[in-house]
Design a protein around this nucleic acid. Sequence first.
DNA 1: CAATGCCA
DNA 2: TGGCATTGG
Length: 325
Amino acid sequence: MGNAALREIAVIEEIPFDEVEGVVAVDAHNWLYRYLTTTVKWTNSAAYTTPDGIEVANLVGIVQGLPKFFEHDVTPVMVFDGGPSELKADEIESRREQRETYEQQLEVAREEGDEVAIAQLESRTQRLTPTIQETSRELLGLLDVPIIEAPAEGEAQAAHIVRRGDADYVGTEDYDALLFGAPLTLRQLTSKGNPELMDLAATLERHDLTLEQLVDAAILIGTDFNEGVSGIGPKTAIAEITEHGDLWSVLEARGDSVEYGDRVRQLFRQPNVTDDYAFDPTLEPDLEAARAYVTDEWDVDAEEVERGFERIEESVTQTGLDRWT
DNA sequence: CAATGCCA
DNA sequence: TGGCATTGG
């Protein structure tokens, strides 16, 4: 989701994949979700469901999606969302408890009309199922793709990692990455053509804004967590913030108001992220194990993943993934 | 310029 | 989704 109006504000340019270098901190939820909803699923639904009715389109998506990185000598690092759905495989009981807790929280938030909390909790509704999470982690592990656990939003954590210089780009379709302060963001990583590069510094420079002001402008327009002011779009938001300086001054001058403005602001300014992560960008995939996992353990038709594995294999042997530091 | 609805 | 035309302020 995110905010499409930010596209009007952001400096975005298409770049050849060859010019992408280094490490991409991928918003794993966003990345997997693309493969679960669009590409694979409807083309041959049966091929991505086990006899038990468990969806394994994520495994196919991973096998088909990773070669893009490998073939361009780009190291993906998958950043998973934290929060209520971070579950350990064998903790069935705590799983139920957490789900109940989440339901209760959502109920309370609804009663209180706390739109921000509702939005946050609902955004966790469309979370990946525990099975998807577990099998994705397992397969990524076999392929030696680093996984980082975010305390909350994966996107915020990915932005944090890039800000600290431990990765070069955030990978997500979501324009919100900009608001989390991601210096460089790559979009269209799942599509066929070239990716798009979204540049924070260039964006701020173009409009002569600070990041804080950009966040305020986005709040005026409306984000995933707040409604925004009716009648304010990207142009007006920038103009008003430029004229009055910040969110509150704009609202005061217009006699408007925004619900939970301060909380949404904090959400972007001080997201829940951690420095407690580490990864080795040197990838040594165990292709045999990965193939076995997908085709034997989860009964995915070998044809569905053959080409993907071949491409990964070729990348490994030709360029040597272990050269990437 | 913002919002809406339709279509590729 | 994203692009485009329309309408309404």
